[in-house]
């Protein structure tokens, strides 16, 4: 197990360097010049050159790339070009905010959709199943902005069930602030997840061993929970664990409309302002999380499925 993890981590190094290289090249080819925006509208060419030198952007590209690799190891990405604040500090401030919104949304929709999928799989082919499928397709088809605008206008402004927007870690307020965005999150993800898990469950339900279990006279509850759910764990784990890095990177529209100062808008802002330090930091942190959770996924396989052994 230990060897496996070490080996996978070593494999990850060229992947991370590759991602770094692609990010770096893309930025330098099509990214737009950050200096022109930083110097303001009145700058002379001389001032532009001075700032370029001051920021080290006039140095040869390979040297700049080596700096980037060093930053990946030290996690010191410097200061944002646009806000001049410490990039890592900005991310550390924003990530828990995003997570506070995303985690409950994720857990609630996961529980709901898995239970519903078992239920639907049990009643497969009946009216119940069809109603669920149609409703989930409808839910997926409505654009997310529509849910947000409706929820905010109707539930928050007209009925006054929730605050219109805002965020605070203050324990007396945080629940009311995240309630509506979490609700919308659940509504947004439920349809898609239900359809996915339903397919997963149906795959298992039609297997020979399920028929055997039934013919042994096991009751349906045991069949569904002990056999179907347990054997469906592999695709469930794959989809769940790989979503976790996305929870930290935030939900762009929800954060933006509910004025939640999370990471959702940070990366978009960074692209729009050619804020290289922020782009580098976000891409790298996300890639590293992605690789780590991939490894975790493999380890979890061996935990739920005895046939999978880690060598």
């Amino acid at each position: 197990m230990f060897n496996f993890i070490i080996r996978r981590l070593l494999y990850a190094i060229p992947i991370i360097i590759g991602i770094a290289l692609i990010t770096f090249l893309l930025f330098n080819v099509v990214g737009g010049d950050p200096v022109l925006q930083m110097v303001g509208k009145h700058a002379t060419p001389q001032v532009i050159e001075e700032l370029r030198a001051e920021m080290g952007l006039n140095r040869p590209l390979p040297m700049q790339f080596v700096d980037f690799l060093r930053q990946i190891v030290t996690f010191d990405y410097g200061r944002s070009y646009s806000s001049k604040r410490d990039v890592l500090g900005m991310m550390i401030q924003a990530a828990p905010v995003s997570f506070t919104l995303a985690f409950p949304g994720f857990i609630i929709s996961l529980c709901l959709s898995i239970s519903a999928s078992l239920f639907v799989a049990f009643w497969r082919g009946t009216l119940v199943d069809r109603v669920f499928v149609v409703v989930s397709v409808l839910m997926i088809s409505v654009p997310s902005l529509a849910y947000i605008l409706f929820g905010q206008y109707f539930l928050a402004y007209k009925v006054g069930l929730f605050p219109i927007s805002g965020f605070s870690f203050d324990p007396t307020q945080v629940f009311s602030y995240i309630a509506l965005p979490v609700l919308i999150w659940v509504v947004l993800s439920f349809g898609g997840e239900l359809r996915f898990y339903r397919t997963v469950m149906l795959d298992e339900i039609n297997q020979d061993y399920i028929r055997t279990a039934r013919s042994k006279g096991l009751n349906e509850r045991v069949v569904m929970f002990k056999h179907v759910l347990k054997n469906a764990m592999i695709p469930i784990i794959t989809s769940v664990l790989i979503q976790i890095p996305f929870l930290i990177t935030g939900a762009l529209l929800l954060e933006s409309f509910f004025a939640i100062p999370g990471m959702g808008t940070q990366l978009i802002d960074a692209f729009n302002t050619s804020d290289l330090p922020m782009i580098k930091a976000q891409v790298m942190v996300f890639s590293i999380l992605y690789v780590v959770f991939n490894i975790l996924t493999d380890i979890c396989y061996s935990l739920v499925d005895p046939r999978v052994t880690i060598k």
Binding site: I164, S165, S256, F258
Partner: peptide
């Protein structure tokens, strides 16, 4: 001063007197 990037929430806060 609250930072609210989107127009709709700003507008609704204003209409509510907030």
């Amino acid at each position: 001063v609250r930072v609210i990037v989107e127009e709709q929430p700003r507008w609704l806060h204003f209409l509510k007197g907030e």
